[in-house]
Design a protein around this nucleic acid. Structure first.
Lengths: 103, 103
DNA sequence: TTGTTATATGATTGATTAGTCATATAACAA
DNA sequence: TTGTTATATGACTAATCAATCATATAACAA
């Protein structure tokens, strides 16, 4: 129940390439596993594990409909965080580029 | 140079309890290692490793002054991300609480 | 019922990680 | 010079992680 630990868990859940690919794919709305894993070119079982991890970290929501399970980004703040990471990445790349030019 | 991988690296650097404690301590401005490690109750060597990791991930900046090395949060977006994670955590806790009440 | 599709999970492997202890380096003071 | 303080790093360990393969479960169709 440590708050630092819970915050870290949320951010750690976002900090993995396969999971980021899933989140990017879910930007347009909910999708079932059968749509997600071919879209990100990962195995079904691996995709399923990452989806479960993100549900238990509070990143994704899960909805069952017949045989299919639909996943969606649970809160808009998630996408804001990912977008801010993109901003930081862009600034880093610019910065490193300028360092190279100056050298 | 994969962009998904770089974004993941930034978020992963934020998603660890000891590193979150460091970032929280650096909210008020730059601090040297000798101030940081007692404040977060971690070993000097462990703290130094986490600081180096965050510098190479683009999270912190490093400034040398005599014997001391001062670290600071490199970009305001970093703190925004951490604050959003706190918001998500609060919503998660509220949600789980309501589920308990409803059960 | 049997077959098919969608998803989850046990068992395993190799890689990465956080943390510790001891030591190295570097800057400055006396 | 010697001593002291601040920081970084090599070597190591135990724990966690991502990915894979095979298999289990669950829902529905024929």
């Amino acid at each position: 129940m440590d708050k630092t630990y819970i915050r870290a868990e949320i951010l750690r859940a976002l900090g993995q390439p396969t999971r980021l690919k899933i989140i990017d794919f879910l930007r347009d709305g909910e999708r079932c596993v059968c749509e997600i894993f071919p879209a990100i070119s990962e195995e079904q079982s691996n995709t399923s594990r990452h989806l479960s991890l993100m549900v238990s970290s509070g990143i994704l929501s899960r909805r069952k409909e017949g045989v299919k399970i639909f996943y969606a980004v649970k809160r808009p703040e998630i996408l804001t965080i990912v977008d801010l990471a993109t901003t930081i990445m862009a600034q880093e790349i610019t910065g490193r580029h300028e360092m190279l030019l100056a050298a």
